[in-house]
């Protein structure tokens, strides 16, 4: 059985692994769910569209809002990279973080689809640039500050939706996504020379 903690966040297809399906469907009487119908996110099996009803729809809605965030983050890093303002190690880091967001996006899209939902489409890069007021970015620090703001917001967003998931394993996935965003925020803050939070529990309250 794969260990969810050591698999990557890229969508994994392991049709023989259905960890969790018994507990997931214990109360629904849908125990005949096939292994192939179990979506994988971050190495963790998820219930799919053959299960019923409102709680599932609620979870799909949360994942779709998260997907909107990831689309925006990917576009924001693209805008930053194409601005020509970001160079050297900072550019390398921006590319790495964008690739993480692409991994998040792919994992979310495949999970939403396998749960029977329709993944939201990305907005155009021009729309994102306008919404984020990208025209005001003049220096590398401006770009990194915007990235840090979005990463901190994303970390807090994932932490703030955790109580709303009805599916426990999705809560863990949200926490793992929040951890990635926190790692990005911390690295960006270091480059920008910003202080770390002085108190404990500063995220997600």
């Amino acid at each position: 059985m794969s260990n969810p903690l050591v698999t990557t966040l890229a969508p994994v297809t392991l049709p023989n692994i259905d960890l969790g399906r018994r507990t997931l469907f214990r109360h629904t009487g849908k125990a005949m769910l096939s292994a192939a119908a179990v979506a994988m996110i971050g190495g963790v099996a998820m219930p799919t569209g053959s299960a019923s009803a409102a709680p599932m729809q609620g979870d799909i809605d949360i994942l779709n809002v998260a997907l909107g965030l990831e689309h925006e983050a990917i576009a924001a890093y693209q805008i930053g990279a194409e601005s020509g303002l970001v160079k050297g190690k900072a550019l390398d880091a921006a590319k790495l973080f964008q690739s993480h967001h692409k991994g998040h996006r792919d994992a979310l899209v495949s999970t939403i689809e396998k749960m029977g939902g329709k993944p939201v489409a990305p907005k155009s890069q021009a729309d994102v640039a306008k919404a984020l007021n990208a025209g005001s970015l003049k220096t590398q620090d401006d770009v990194l500050r915007l990235a840090a703001k979005l990463e901190l917001g994303a970390a807090n967003a994932y932490l703030g939706v955790i109580p709303s998931f009805s599916e426990g394993m999705l809560k863990q996935v949200a926490a793992r996504l929040a951890a990635d965003e926190t790692m990005h925020w911390t690295a960006l803050s270091g480059v920008l020379g910003l202080p770390l939070p002085t108190g404990p529990l500063s995220f997600g309250a």
């Binding site: 809002v65 909107g68 965030l69 925006e72 919404a131 703001k149 901190l152 917001g153």
Partner: peptide, 14 residues
Amino acid sequence: QRCVACHSLDTSRI
């Protein structure tokens, strides 16, 4: 810190 991941004052985003 908490809202601008999804909201802005003057633009609709997520």
